[in-house]
Amino acid sequence: MRHARDVLEEVLGQLPPRPRSELKRQLRALDSRYVSRTLPDPFAAHRQWRSDLWWRRRLAGGRVAG
């Protein structure tokens, strides 16, 4: 999951305004589902190279979500 979301975030930064807003709208629904199925990782700041990206600070099934 994290790699795919990383790629999508990079794509968002390269899209023109209208397609970017359409993709963001789609991602909001998917991100919401992901958040509801994972837990915050209390050690993410020490573990992740990009702890500023919220999806890298989640745990899924007792593991770092991937």
Rank of each mutant, 00 (worst) to 15 (best):
residue 11 V to Y: 00
residue 32 S to N: 15
residue 9 E to Q: 06
residue 9 E to D: 12
residue 21 S to F: 04
residue 13 G to C: 04
residue 15 L to Q: 10
residue 2 R to I: 02
residue 14 Q to P: 00
residue 14 Q to T: 09
residue 12 L to Y: 03
residue 13 G to H: 05
residue 25 R to P: 05
residue 21 S to K: 08
residue 22 E to H: 11
residue 13 G to W: 03
residue 24 K to P: 00
residue 31 D to A: 10
residue 6 D to T: 03
residue 5 R to K: 10
residue 12 L to G: 03
residue 16 P to R: 13
residue 21 S to N: 09
residue 26 Q to P: 00
residue 33 R to A: 15
residue 3 H to E: 06
residue 18 R to K: 15
residue 30 L to G: 06
residue 16 P to K: 13
residue 8 L to E: 04
residue 8 L to V: 02
residue 17 P to M: 09
residue 4 A to V: 13
residue 23 L to A: 03
residue 11 V to E: 03
residue 33 R to L: 15
residue 31 D to V: 03
residue 1 M to L: 12
residue 20 R to K: 14
residue 1 M to K: 07
residue 23 L to P: 00
residue 17 P to H: 09
residue 29 A to T: 11
residue 14 Q to K: 12
residue 19 P to V: 07
residue 4 A to M: 11
residue 15 L to V: 06
residue 19 P to E: 10
residue 26 Q to W: 09
residue 13 G to K: 07
residue 28 R to F: 07
residue 23 L to T: 00
residue 23 L to H: 01
residue 25 R to L: 14
residue 28 R to D: 12
residue 27 L to G: 08
residue 21 S to T: 11
residue 3 H to S: 04
residue 12 L to D: 02
residue 18 R to Y: 07
residue 19 P to I: 09
residue 3 H to I: 04
residue 26 Q to R: 15
residue 26 Q to C: 09
residue 29 A to W: 06
residue 20 R to N: 01
residue 10 E to N: 12
residue 22 E to M: 11
residue 6 D to Q: 04
residue 10 E to C: 05
residue 30 L to N: 04
residue 30 L to S: 11
residue 4 A to R: 14
residue 27 L to D: 09
residue 32 S to Q: 15
residue 7 V to H: 01
residue 31 D to E: 14
residue 31 D to G: 10
residue 20 R to P: 01
residue 10 E to G: 12
residue 2 R to C: 02
residue 15 L to H: 08
residue 8 L to Y: 01
residue 16 P to L: 14
residue 3 H to A: 09
residue 24 K to G: 13
residue 22 E to L: 14
residue 18 R to L: 13
residue 23 L to V: 05
residue 1 M to R: 08
residue 26 Q to G: 09
